[in-house]
């Protein structure tokens, strides 16, 4: 086939290579990235290819299948979602205003933070619940596909340079204390306090292939499904629906909508702007 796309490779051919890579990873290692959105996945693959000094996805496929350490690196690149504590502070304000009062009516609260990555959102939520007087009766299940990021999440460390950004976010998010009360600094690393970890369970869970494992009052899954294609998003919404208590709360990212899924009819908006929904059916 004539290729006039000088120097950039044939996009259809690259899509074929990506399909083959993902199929190979799935069959050999069991991780299923086949339902991901290719446009954003592709950029992550490009970065891995650059780091591995490879020029085509096919070369990456060969290395990944023959070298487990390379698969580990690829898994990390595909599964880490870099985020910040109290990213979208307004969301946490809305959570305080609209969700906390509902949670007060429960004697025990189970929360699932799906796709928790390195734990920034999990701990933000733990702080919020502590300030609302709800943390002691809450258990947060924070899950991710990647064991290595869960270890980092469990440690609860962040670079001390991030502290001022996080402190600002915390204040905008309606924080009622001082963010500095929640961590101690040692040798350039800030470690979140023990108490914030006491009621958090970190566990591996794969949204693509694993099933529901409990019934929750709240599920937060923010800016995780943006990396999925529509059919996979529908599957995960099914999983969340099955895992939510009747009248349970689902929180999505700022630009994710339940409107575009099959599950729209089973929820009512609690706060449309901040993507908080309540299961009704």
């Amino acid at each position: 086939m004539a290729d006039r796309d000088r120097g950039y490779g044939e996009p259809e051919l690259e899509i074929l290579e990506i399909e083959l890579l993902l199929e190979g990873i799935h069959r050999h290692y069991g991780f299923d990235f086949r339902g991901y959105a290719y446009s954003s996945l592709k950029r992550r693959l490009w970065r891995v290819m650059a780091e591995e000094h490879l020029s085509t996805v096919s070369e990456l496929q060969s290395r990944v299948l023959h070298d487990e350490a390379c698969m580990e690196r690829l898994l990390r690149a595909l599964s880490i979602n870099v985020t910040a504590m109290f990213r979208d502070p307004d969301f946490f304000v809305a959570f305080r205003d609209k969700v906390a009062p509902l949670l007060r009516t429960y004697p025990f609260i189970r929360v699932w933070n799906a796709g928790c990555s390195t734990g920034e959102e999990t701990y933000s939520l733990a702080i919020l619940l502590a300030e609302e007087g709800l943390y002691e009766r809450t258990r947060i299940y924070a899950t991710d596909i990647n064991d290595a990021v869960l270890e980092r999440a469990e440690a609860g460390d962040f670079p001390v340079e991030k502290a001022s950004e996080y402190a600002q976010n915390y204040l905008k998010a309606g924080g009622s204390g001082a963010f500095s009360d929640y961590y101690a600094t040692r040798e350039g690393t800030a470690r979140l306090s023990r108490r914030l970890k006491d009621n958090v369970v970190f566990a591996q869970h794969n949204l693509v292939s694993d099933r529901s494992f409990n019934e929750f009052h709240v599920i937060l899954c923010r800016n995780v499904m943006i990396y999925f294609g529509r059919p996979l998003q529908d599957r995960v919404h099914g999983l969340f629906y099955d895992s939510l208590d009747r009248l349970g709360i689902l929180g999505l990212g700022q630009k994710e909508s339940i409107r575009l899924t099959r599950y729209e009819g089973y929820y009512e908006p609690l706060d449309v702007h901040h993507r908080l929904y309540r299961r009704i059916g």
């Binding site: 959105a37 290719y38 446009s39 954003s40 950029r43 990213r87 800016n223 499904m225 943006i226 529509r230 998003q233 990212g253 700022q254 630009k255 994710e256 909508s257 575009l260």
Partner: peptide, 29 residues
């Protein structure tokens, strides 16, 4: 919005703090 479809005459902006990509006639964030 994520996975929103494009249509002729729409003007869709990358939201603050998100990358916007396009794939299969849809927005991907």
């Amino acid at each position: 919005e994520d996975k929103q479809e494009l249509w002729p005459g729409c003007v869709l902006l990358a939201p603050p703090d998100y990358h916007l990509l396009v794939e299969g006639g849809m927005c991907v964030l």
